[in-house]
Design a protein around this nucleic acid. Structure first.
Length: 521
RNA sequence: GACCCCGUAGCUCAAUCGGCAGAGCAGCGGACUUUUAAUCCGUUGGUUCUGGGUUCGAGUCCCAGCGGGGUCACCA
């Protein structure tokens, strides 16, 4: 099958052919660079500080990178190349390169190509550190022209479908994912420094649990059974606490087969960490410490701006019980409305967006979402949730209707969920049974009973605190992005017919799976 | 899943009330030996997302579809 090239692509292909005719490989197997652009600039600044203004390097350096601009002026040309560390200007003169090489650069090197350039560092009269090129060599011919140089790539769909082009065109995109990466590595360093061990638990699970969500379903051919992509790793991590590890964490993808919006993605990244002999008080301090450290490492500050709001991460963070928060922002005290009918009426009267059939816990949740969360701009722990909302959390000793649970909220975003873990196996079993009743009553997201987990608890889990942090939401906060998709490198998109080289072959799996939502369709 | 908005050159965007599809960047040709979105002269490039319909005439209006975005629902 012949790949059809556009007019512009064909022109560039011909230039690649011309390079070949000249004995130059348009797809060189290797680059031989001596310095990154960053190292070259540092080198020159050092030389300049030693020898004074006007100094020029006397040793040649070789740089490699993508040509991102060319300004031709008769018998000279300026060009910027970009590598993974930054950009540096090339200064090309016909008198330095010879007429043939100089013309060849102008004729055969395009924006987007990778080249290698050797020369000496100096500062132009306009003050820019530059490389006076003695020779250059093509490394990679780009057949696609880069997006518009001034506006970059704006089309949201293209930016997501072709993230590579977005990264080439938009400095901001490069910044966002760099910060995300630094944030995650800082999180690992922080937990490692506290003696946490990083573990890996199954992505494909025979039974899903640890959260209320609809799973993606797939078929495990080798085991001849339906499996689920994990919606959480919670129950596995707590099994490890049962096993005797004191501090464990995992950063992984969770999958929830639900809607996509600016705060939700069916495939998202979660950090969960569990600590024996700790409770939710301890874990609040852990969260404060973790996020402050990550911000300091990734951003160099603990004061940030999210969507126009200035946020100060300095601990201690505000704490407010869920009951007080809802009372303060909606005027409703849900404790005074223990029945669905009563709470529903009060919620409706307050203007809450709830349907008549909404169950009691969901009304509470709606009140939280609608009235409280938008006000939680500065870091705030909302604590102590009704037991009905939290089947895996431990009850408060002085109030068995509530559990020791908190959710950190920053910038109006719910960035996590945590509690003192329920370690009473019989209470846990009873909660599972209640979930099963909810499921029978039509709650598709109620958790299935996990008897093996109950069995694990029967071996004894010490008092334990656990936390889940939504890494993507934290990345939104750190990078001031309004949508989760802006901090996910390759957000899921519908497949375009034109994108396929052929039909995908996932049919066996799709046919066997009772729910083929995971399989290619 | 419902509703609303968007889809024009490789990219960024115009196109009056329904009346000859245009500009900038990129590309191509040329001038220019320190430029910074270089500048200047010339120039190529269109299935206006797809398929129907209305009309003398559709980028524009109507219907359906595809793709994306937003709001809602769903998402402890």
């Amino acid at each position: 099958m012949e790949l059809e090239l556009s007019e512009l692509q064909e022109l560039r292909r011909q230039k690649a052919e011309e390079l070949r005719r000249l004995g130059l490989d348009p797809y060189s197997p290797r680059a031989i660079r001596t310095h990154t652009t960053e190292e070259a600039r540092e080198r020159f600044l050092k030389i300049e500080s030693e020898r004074g203004a006007g100094a020029e390097d006397d040793e040649p350096v070789t740089l490699a990178g993508r040509v991102v601009s060319v300004r031709h002026m008769g018998k000279t040309a300026f060009s910027h190349i970009r590598d993974g560390h930054g950009e540096l200007q090339l200064y090309l003169r016909r008198d330095d390169l010879g007429e043939e090489e100089f013309e060849r650069f102008l004729k055969l090197i395009d924006l987007g190509d990778f080249i290698e350039a050797t020369g000496t560092l100096f500062r132009t009269k306009t003050g820019e550190v530059s490389l006076r090129v003695q020779r250059y060599r093509p490394l990679t011919k780009a057949l696609n022209a880069p997006p518009e140089k001034w506006h970059g790539l704006q089309d949201v769909e293209l930016r997501h479908r072709q993230r590579y082009a977005d990264l080439i065109a938009n400095e901001e995109t490069r910044r966002v994912f760099l910060i995300r990466s630094r944030m995650i590595s800082a999180i690992r360093r922080y937990l490692d420094s506290l003696g946490y061990i990083e573990v890996e638990t199954p992505t494909l699970q025979p039974l899903y649990g640890g959260a209320a969500a609809r799973p993606f379903t797939t078929y495990y051919n080798a085991l001849d059974q339906t499996f689920y992509l994990r919606i959480a790793d919670e129950l596995y991590l707590k099994r490890l606490i049962v096993g005797g590890y004191e501090r464990v964490y995992e950063i992984c993808k969770d999958f929830r087969n639900e809607g996509i919006d600016r705060n939700h993605s069916p495939e998202f990244t979660m950090l969960e960490f569990y600590e024996a002999y700790a409770d939710y008080e301890t874990m609040m301090q852990r969260v404060e410490g973790l996020i402050v450290y990550a911000a300091q490492e990734a951003l160099g500050t603990t004061r940030l701006v999210y969507q126009g709001n200035e946020i100060d991460l300095t601990p201690p963070w505000r704490r407010i019980t869920l009951r007080d928060a809802i009372r303060q922002y909606s005027g409703i005290d849900y404790v005074e409305h223990p029945t669905q009918e009563s709470l529903f009426a009060a919620a409706r009267a307050a203007g809450a967006d709830v349907e008549p059939g909404t169950v009691w816990p969901r009304i509470v949740d709606q009140l939280l979402k609608q009235f409280v969360r938008p006000h939680l701009i500065q870091p705030t722990f909302v604590i102590d949730y009704p037991v009905e909302l939290s089947p895996l959390a431990k009850r408060k000793p002085d109030d068995p209707t509530h559990v020791e649970r908190f959710q950190p909220n920053i910038g109006g975003l719910e960035i996590g969920n945590a509690f003192t873990e329920l370690n009473d196996p019989l209470d846990q079993y009873a909660r599972f049974v209640q979930q099963q009743k909810d499921r029978a009553a039509g709650d598709e997201e109620a958790m299935p009973i996990d008897l093996d987990y109950v069995n694990a608890l029967m071996y004894g889990m010490p008092p334990t605190g656990g936390v889940g942090i939504g890494i993507d939401r934290l990345a939104m906060l750190f990078t001031d992005q309004p949508s989760l998709r802006d901090v996910i490198l390759f957000p899921a998109m519908r497949r375009l017919p034109a994108q396929q080289g052929g039909e995908p072959t996932g049919e066996d799996d799709a046919n066997k799976a009772t729910n083929s939502s995971l399989a290619a369709t």
